[in-house]
Amino acid sequence: MSVAGTASALPRLERKGKVTQLRVVLSEWTKLRSLRSTRWSLLVGSVLAIGFPLLFATILSNRWGHLSLRERAHRHPLDVALSGVHVAQLAIGVLGVLVITGEYSTGMIRSTFIAVPKRLPVLWAKAGVYAAVTFVLMLPAVLIAFFGSQAILGNHHILEISFSHPGVARTVIGGAVYLMLIGVFSLGLGAIVRNTAGGIATFAAIMFVIPPLLNILPSSWNNAINPYLPSTAGDAIFSLTHGSDTLAPGPGLALFCGYTALSLAIAAMLLVRRDT
């Protein structure tokens, strides 16, 4: 490294500005794009969202002749096209936690809060930037997954469905919306827990561990609770049809938005109060 041998006077700064929400957004965008872990997680998320549908479409095309009629009837083209969403949510959720816990584990959060001592603008900016980035990346991903898997299946004239078929566009785009919300939801969890391992564990417990556990309960209980779990409500956002025991897409979206807002609200409350 080069060393400044003699003391240089600090050059004056001519223009002095205030902290604004927009400036904090720009700062958070710089932070997000300047980390290797972000770029990798988002790349992995996109690859998973596209790769799994293409893989499943290929397997089904090749094995279709061996499947029973009953089994064929249970396959749905959108299940194939959106299979990647279930996998990508892990990458998006983990990165959402990391966006904030990475600052706590390294001590960066102190620099951040010294620059923005009111703190809340940081949380809003992180959530906004991460939501925008996730949606902008995941929307093309689910569209590529849909049209790509349809192209493969179409070659074999199986499981064909048109994008203009009622509800299809809504469901496919719903996959990207779901991933965006899951990112913000997990970011809120990260801000509440402030610890990477704990944040990821909390996220996994809520989304993947608790739902199957409810099967142990009497089924009348399970049926009453299950539709309102974050994971089930989230699923409704990118499901074409819904049964009597799950929510319709609209209410599902509203409920999952509610969970996301709750996660952020608790995070905001704690962020302002706690020592750093």
């Binding site: 205030k18 604004t20 400036r23 700062s27």
Partner: peptide, 9 residues
């Protein structure tokens, strides 16, 4: 840069 941007520096 990220810290500077919070103040429009």
């Amino acid at each position: 840069l990220a810290l500077a941007q919070t103040h429009g520096i």
